[in-house]
């Protein structure tokens, strides 16, 4: 059943009389026990999706529109005290850089216990026991000893494990992971991804994985959304989208990335650069970089169309591209 139901989410930033949409009409669902990957380059708005779902965009300059329903409760309109109770317990988040997410002058144990006691009325000794258990569950060596350590005494992979332990200790229904392995080395990345997979399998929580790395998405996500300039340009089951991408941006991204299986003479880059927030093009935001673009693409924003099964693509030129392919 659907756990998170996001309908027509918009996040816009206001400066004086000017408005710019960071997220523009995003709709998606996540079921319990599933992993949704949200892929995009820098400036695509992918981190804003994560923060909006977490209810962390309480900023006077930002407006959030649409609905973000967790189990039928709209988080956008929820009073802040009730939202606060859900943050960290029903929905939890881990960030890209575990070094800056941990308090450098507080022991690891104290930090885990603090987040635990903020949500549950339990004794300090029970909290300690739960914290040690959680550290063990995320594969930390010597969990009891780790409780007394400081963040600087841990490696990058260990810090991310601590963040994960803290995030899952209250058994959230949804874990939001924003580039959880980007700052880590390749072999440590593999460990953390395997851990996240195992936690999803064992606890049935849903995982919303934000990343720029198509390889991470291919490994982890059941479904994926490709975000470009704040809009979903393509979405669907991960394997299907990666094997049969239909939107020119997805096609371009996959062609631009070298792969180990084949040796290409030249890569096919996408010309130009992603648009900046205040300079997003009219119509389809990808049209200045798209070789299939026509006048119609500059005029109107293309709506998402079903292309195969549940796969959707927001492009006016799907027919022309199919012919040329």
């Amino acid at each position: 059943m659907t756990l998170l139901d996001v309908k027509d989410m918009t996040v816009s930033v206001h400066a004086g009389a000017r408005t710019a949409p960071i997220i523009d009409g995003l709709t998606f669902q996540i079921k319990a026990g599933q992993c949704l990957g949200i892929v995009g380059e820098s400036g695509s708005g992918k981190s804003s999706v994560a923060l909006a779902v977490m209810g962390l965009l309480n900023n006077d300059a930002l407006r959030i529109g649409g609905t973000i329903e967790l189990d039928g409760t709209d988080l956008v309109t929820l009073p802040s005290a009730q939202l606060r109770a859900r943050q960290g317990s029903d929905i939890a988040m881990i960030f890209q850089d575990p070094a800056s997410s941990l308090n450098p002058v507080q022991r690891i144990g104290a930090q885990i216990i603090e987040s635990l006691r903020a949500h549950r009325r339990i004794s300090r000794s029970d909290a300690t026991r739960l914290a040690v258990e959680a550290l063990g569950r995320v594969g930390m060596p010597d969990p009891a000893g780790m409780m007394r350590r400081y963040a600087h005494q841990l490696s990058g992979g260990q810090r991310q494990r601590v963040m994960i332990a803290m995030a899952v200790i209250l058994k959230p229904r949804l874990l939001v992971a924003d580039e959880p392995t980007t700052a880590l080395d390749l072999t440590i990345q593999a460990q953390i991804l395997a851990l996240l997979k195992q936690l999803v399998r064992d606890t049935g929580m849903a995982l919303m994985l934000i990343t720029h790395d198509l390889g991470v998405v291919a490994e982890m996500a059941d479904d994926l959304i490709v975000l470009y300039a704040g809009r979903a340009v393509e979405a669907g089951p991960t394997a299907q989208v990666l094997d049969h991408p239909r939107h020119p941006y997805t096609i371009g991204l996959l062609a631009a990335h070298p792969v180990l299986e084949t040796r290409q003479d030249r890569l096919t880059p996408i010309p130009g650069t992603p648009p900046r927030l205040w300079h997003r093009p009219m119509g389809c935001a990808f049209h200045p970089r798209c070789k299939w673009a026509q006048d119609a693409c500059r005029a109107g924003v293309p709506a998402a169309q079903l292309v195969r099964g549940t796969q959707t693509a927001a492009c006016l030129r799907l027919d022309a591209m199919q012919v040329s392919a």
Binding site: S155, G157, Q158, D185, L186, T187, I188, Q189, A190, Q191, A194, L214, G215, V216, A218, E219, L242, D243, H257, V259, L260, E261
Partner: peptide, 26 residues
Amino acid sequence: AALMSAARRLHAKPGAPVPVILSGDV
């Protein structure tokens, strides 16, 4: 071998060899 295995993620097909996951940190 472990690095190659960790890097072969994009388009990993079902039935592909199980990736080698190294334990511990550098």
